[in-house]
């Protein structure tokens, strides 16, 4: 795939990284379901989830394309800022040690433990397994659909964002099929940090466009916003670590 300019490269990257994180989380549940309750039911749930997500994406894309541009820029901008800032905040607090890192091995163990305690299926497809797999794919996938539609809001960007998400999903599924265990080595918090920065930068940029702010350098200013947010995020990790260390030192005898 080649990128003509920044307006296709950045949606691809943002969608790829964001989708990778969400696909890893969904795949952990599907792997747990497949391991404990059987692969046929786990894959049936996965397929049903993907089908609903595809229908959602097909419905959302054209609806957004038909709406007034300024309205979409403000609406999508607000949602991207809220979504991106939530990810960035959580990633900063996790990097600083204020809240615990997400652990795929732990999530896998918790899910398999839960599924083992439930009654087995009597015949055919296992309804519990299908529902668990379906719900995981749908819930994590909705975030993927939102990221793809929001960062690719311009016509040119939508196919780039969709390609990024599809590539991420393909890599995660391939790795899961080969390894048959949770992808715990993926640096999930680093990815979430990067996606939080990129998505927030897109959101602020779209909002500005919606408010008819003339950003210096046009699309290139997305990178400047991202660089500022990244710098702020790294400074905040250090400050939050210091705050935590000072508090711990303060209560030590």
């Amino acid at each position: 795939m080649t990128f003509n300019n920044l307006s296709t490269a950045t949606p691809f990257l943002a969608a790829f990284l964001g989708s990778f994180v969400e696909c890893v989380e969904a795949m952990t549940i599907v792997l747990a379901v497949g391991t404990v309750r059987g692969w046929r039911s786990a894959l049936a749930g996965l397929g049903a989830g993907l089908l609903v997500l595809a229908l959602l994406a097909i419905a959302l894309g054209p609806a957004i394309a038909r709406a007034p541009v300024a309205l979409i820029q403000v609406l999508v901008g607000v949602l991207l800022v809220l979504f991106g800032m939530a990810w960035l905040r959580k990633a900063i607090l996790r990097a600083a040690g204020v809240i615990a890192l997400h652990d795929e091995e732990k999530a896998f163990a918790a899910e398999t433990g839960l599924l083992r305690g439930l009654p087995p299926a009597l015949t055919g497809l296992d309804a519990i397994a299908v529902a668990t797999s379906f719900k995981a794919v749908l819930l994590e996938g909705i975030e993927v659909v939102f990221i793809v539609v929001a960062v690719g809001v311009r016509q040119q960007g939508l196919s780039a964002a969709a390609s990024g998400a599809a590539l991420a999903a393909a890599i995660v599924v391939a790795l899961a099929l080969v390894l048959r265990r949770p992808l715990s080595l993926v640096p999930e918090n680093v990815l979430k940090f990067g996606v939080g920065v990129l998505i927030s930068a897109f959101g602020i940029y779209w909002l500005g466009e919606g408010f008819e702010i003339a950003w210096p350098g046009g699309d290139l200013f997305i990178l400047a916003i991202a660089a500022l947010l990244l710098a702020l995020g790294l400074v905040l990790v250090t400050l939050a670590k210091r705050s935590l260390a000072a508090a711990v030192a303060g209560i030590s005898p």
Binding site: M85, V98, I213, W215, A240, V248
Partner: peptide
Amino acid sequence: RGALLLGGVMAILATNVLSSARAASPR
């Protein structure tokens, strides 16, 4: 306007993260 929008969003994030870190610190 652009600087106000960006600066405000960054200030809100900084305030929220630092207050969350303080609130989570052991008493």
